[in-house]
Design a protein around this nucleic acid. Structure first.
Length: 726
DNA sequence: AAGTCCGTTGTA
DNA sequence: ACAACGGACTTC
């Protein structure tokens, strides 16, 4: 876009706020701006970063127009990324500015990285030569630029020696371009040794990696080497000069993945997740935009990085619920990645040992390709799985571990191997009550029980984070020392384990661990090195780690996830338990998985123990089809929340009344949400259910347009394809 | 989303 | 009497 000298031109700019359309800004004389340019613009009393857009704006009073303050010296957001923003905004019913905001998550990166100050040999000799000076000069004589500290360090001298030489004019100061955050991966660095089956799968993926849009499911049991196989597709994309994005759930914890990548490509991928330091974040963002970082391994938000030349997206563990974002813009990164591939016309690979029902159906119906890896790689063998019927082998009074499991742990310990106990419950006990008056400790702002965390001596709300000191006396009746913990959390299981195996090295892992992500990484590494005998963990132990000495996995309570009325409960439980039991036996040890359950005949348990995934999926798919649930029908949920219950309820009813008449779409509710109160906000929920082919978004837009405006404390959140039904 | 403006309430 | 807050309103 060029400017006219008499009539300064206005351009649309998406600003990071919930407006339905871009705003218009004037382009000052001499400023050069293209669609995708990242600009600094005035917005009310402040200045914000926005993106120059290319879709129509509303006509606006020319007097209101204000000029763009600055165009950042930064590669513009490309056409494909812009269409992606529009698409995501439209699909999720989010304001486009809020989606664009996700592309602008590293404000410091809009300006180029400053060069580092460096030193280069000027050709001059020092006044007097010493041994230390000689060592420094030896390194610098080739004329390459060094950083001051780098040179001193390499020469094994102090900074004083280098500074002395500099002041004598032996070095001249130069600018060193900022170093890359990661080295360039080499597609030919270390060709893997693949089995026949893996090689065949890799060949299919390599062929797709060269072409346009396609989606391929890599369906392989845990330990079958899915990663090695899709690495070959990455190699092909790299060889073709494209950038690659690998989405990984909980990337912050999976250092094993980064190591494997390094082994294959001779360099680490760029990392992107919420735990990055601001400095690193900024460097990665910038270098992705410039095309210098070739491969990013990241959490779901990495989908909104400004790739210069994206040519492949891999979604590892595609079924993982961590891909669903449920705040601000509600989106599923797996589905949006497929859209990104479609818009950018490049292939997408989904990998999982337990694919989501949606992906299974897409593969069955031929919309997605599928490659299958049926055998565990090399020496790895699938664990031998069995259910422990808790009605027949109940735990000791006050305990939660059946004698059968304890006996197996004892044997494992005796062989010097590791056991893993899995329980998806943080803390010591999920409920505390008074034995005298029956008082139950509930969060003052949420409809949920306070969870006792005994290590910290606190009662904690897992919904809003509220915590209080655990009292000695009941706040209701005042009786001392009669509070009782109900049910198990990982801390309580650890206590039980320690009473049975006082000499074993026991470790508890959960996401709330003291010391944060850094500490967790260290502990996971230590476990992989064999520095623990018994590990007790929540779901974070299920994800992608390789524990070579682990030969027993015990699921403490397999029934937990099946209790609520969530339509995805069976699928979730099957996936999670398959993944956990798959932690055992990855390095050839004969291994076992024991599943404690009160309903061993439940189809999920049967499929799991018999290793009959096919039967499970067949049943689950038939059930979804019968009920017209996704992927055979469409769902959206609308959560209305407000400071008071009546406000929320009456607005939810008003939304319901605003629903347009439709034969193919029905609105259920409003009903109080299962979590009726979160952080002091009362919640009501509507479910919108339609046939597969309906225009669900159009229906919702009409509904929202006809509904009264949400004022005061009222908030309305629309969740397309909801995963959580709480 | 993140400011300003303006009305309410709480405290010296 | 005035700060301290919360809600409504605006932003090209």
């Amino acid at each position: 876009m060029s400017e006219d000298s008499r009539n300064p031109m206005a351009v649309p700019v998406l600003v990071p706020m919930p407006a339905e359309r871009p705003y218009s800004y004037l382009v000052p004389q001499g400023m050069l701006v293209v669609p995708g340019s990242i600009v600094r613009v005035p917005l009310g009393p402040r200045e914000v970063a926005g993106i120059v857009w290319d879709t129509p704006t509303d006509v606006v009073d020319p007097k209101k127009l204000r000029p763009i303050a600055q165009v950042f010296d930064c590669p513009p957001i490309d056409e494909a990324a812009r269409r992606f923003v529009d698409w995501v905004a439209s699909y999720t019913l989010s304001p486009p500015g809020m989606v664009a905001r996700m592309f602008l998550r590293a404000p410091a990166a809009f300006d180029p990285e400053p060069p580092l100050p460096g030193l280069r040999w000027s050709g001059a000799a020092p006044e007097r030569m010493t041994a230390a000076r000689e060592r420094v000069l030896e390194l610098a004589r080739d004329g390459m630029a060094w950083t001051r500290s780098g040179l001193a360090h390499a020469a094994g001298t102090s900074l004083t020696v280098v500074d002395g030489l500099t002041s004598q004019g032996v070095f001249e100061t130069v600018e060193i371009p900022p170093p890359p955050v990661v080295a360039a991966p080499d597609p030919a660095f270390s060709k893997p040794d693949l089995s026949f089956e893996q090689e065949a799968a890799a060949e299919v993926l390599r062929a797709k990696a060269g072409g346009g849009f396609s989606v391929t499911l890599v369906d392989g049991v845990t330990g079958s080497g899915k990663t090695e196989v899709y690495f070959e597709a990455i190699a092909a994309a790299l060889a073709a000069g494209r950038q690659v994005l690998v989405l990984v759930p909980e990337i912050a914890l999976t250092s094993a993945f980064l190591d494997r990548f390094h082994d294959r490509f001779g360099a680490k991928p760029g990392e992107w997740h919420s735990d990055l330091s601001p400095r690193m974040r900024e460097k990665v963002w910038r270098q992705v935009a410039e095309g210098q970082v070739r491969v990013v391994a990241g959490a779901r938000s990495a989908l909104f990085l400004p790739f210069k030349n994206l040519g492949l997206v891999v979604i590892d563990e595609e079924h993982d619920p961590a891909y669903k974002q449920e705040d601000r813009v509600f989106y599923n990164a797996r589905d949006m990645a497929v859209v990104r591939g479609h818009i950018g016309n490049f292939p997408v690979i989904l990998a999982s040992a337990t694919p989501s029902v949606e992906t299974q159906v897409n593969a069955q119906q031929g919309r997605y390709g599928r490659v299958v890896l049926s055998a565990r790689f090399a020496e790895a063998a699938l664990p031998d799985l069995a259910a422990i019927d808790m009605r027949k082998s109940p735990p000791q009074r006050g305990g939660f571990l059946s004698p059968v499991l304890l006996e197996e742990m004892k044997k494992t310990l005796g062989r010097g191997e590791q056991s893993l106990l899995f329980l998806n419950r943080r803390g010591y006990a999920p409920l505390t009550l008074c034995r005298v008056c029956g008082h139950r400790f509930q969060c003052r702002d949420c409809s949920s029980w306070l969870v006792e965390h005994r290590f910290r001596g606190q009662l904690v709300c897992h919904q809003c984070g509220h915590n209080e000191q655990r009292p000695e006396a009941c706040p209701e009746c005042g009786t001392l020392d009669h509070l009782v913990a109900c049910g198990p959390g990982v801390e309580r299981i650890a206590e039980e384990v320690e009473s049975h195996f006082p000499d074993a090295r026991t470790i508890v892992l959960s996401s709330d661990m003291l010391g944060g992500v850094k500490r967790l990484r260290l502990e996971l590494d230590a476990i992989a090195q064999g520095e623990a005998d018994i590990v007790i963990g929540t779901q974070l132990v299920a994800k992608g780690h390789n524990f070579p000495k682990m030969s027993l996995v015990g699921v403490v309570d397999a029934d937990i996830g099946l209790a609520n009325g969530d339509p995805r409960a069976a699928e979730r439980t099957f996936q999670l338990l398959s993944q956990v039991t798959g932690r055992a036996g990855r390095s050839g040890l004969k291994s076992r998985g024991l599943i404690q359950t009160y309903q061993p005949a439940h189809p999920v348990m049967r499929a799991l123990i018999l290793g009959d995934a096919e039967a499970f999926y067949e049943r689950e798919i038939a059930e979804r089809e019968r009920a017209h649930l996704p992927p055979f029908g469409r769902l959206a949920s609308i959560i209305v929340s407000a400071a008071t219950r009546p406000e929320a309820e009456s607005h939810a009813r008003a939304l319901r009344r605003a629903a347009p008449a439709s034969r193919d779409i029905s609105v259920l509710g409003p009903a109080e949400a299962p979590l009726a109160l979160i952080a002091g906000r009362h919640r009501f929920r509507l479910l919108v259910h339609g046939e597969k082919k309906v225009d669900l978004q159009g229906f919702l837009r009409a509904l929202l347009a006809a509904a009264p405006r949400a004022r005061g404390s009222l908030r309305v959140q629309v969740d397309i394809d909801p995963q959580s039904f709480l």
